[in-house]
Amino acid sequence: MKPQALAAAVPAAAGPGLRARLGALARLDARLYQIVFLALLLGTGVLVRDFSLDPRQVALAFAAGIATQLFWVRRLGLPRVGLLSALVTCFGLSVLLRADSLWVHPLAAAACLSAKFVLRIEGKHLFNPTNLGVVLAVLLLPGAWVSPGQWGSDLLVACWVVALGGIVAGRARSAGLSLAFLTCFLGAYALRVAWLGQSWAVFLHLLQNGSLLMFAFFMISDPMTAPNHPVARIAYAACVAVLAFAWQFGLFLQNGPIWALFLCAPLVPLLDRLWPGAKPVWRRNPATTR
């Protein structure tokens, strides 16, 4: 929901005080919402889903992530860049990445946050930091993996992720990305189920998959690494969905969405050139887009 819409949705009878307060809340940085929801998800995962995660891994990821962000901000002399993005990335890595040692999480955090400052094209960083961190860790570091089954497929969990994620995606003005991705991916999957003659319970099983929804609402929805133009964004999400589907059901490899997003990221500068559009900002200050 757009900030203005949120404020406008409050009936006038609620009084000017409440409206003003909600308006102020709505103008807050979208990443604050992301952090709150990612923290909730991490908490749920650890407490309810038995994530195979060590609290020290989480602590080290945050320590390394924050240190890396501070280092680059200082080195590049960026006055108004805070720590919000780094925190989002560290939460994302903690939720997604699994490792059998303590050093995978901090290394991944340091690498992907550095890449955010170094790998930039036309003022935008190329890769979603969490996505890059996960891919680098799985590719290069021993003892790192991703558990796509970790959320299970209980309807309740899925509903929560959708509900929470929907708000975040709405705030980040990239609900289109999430929905386009989900439509294409689930559409292709529905066709596959129908073609194979499988029961629709198989489709519902995927529909309830927490990992897929988590990807749709917390990773691909990142406006900073998506194309600027709305049409390009839809095309981009569709491209990621098709590749993810082929990866998973054609090549029979795991974690299709994560790899597809990584492989499609270089298309973004190209799409930006084809369909020029306004660059997204977190707040109304262009200096804070890192």
Binding site: D50, G149, Q150
Partner: peptide, 13 residues
């Protein structure tokens, strides 16, 4: 290489 788990269902200890 390492531990095997299911990817379309949760694997828990």
């Amino acid at each position: 290489k390492g531990r095997v788990e299911t990817t379309n269902y949760r694997t828990v200890k």
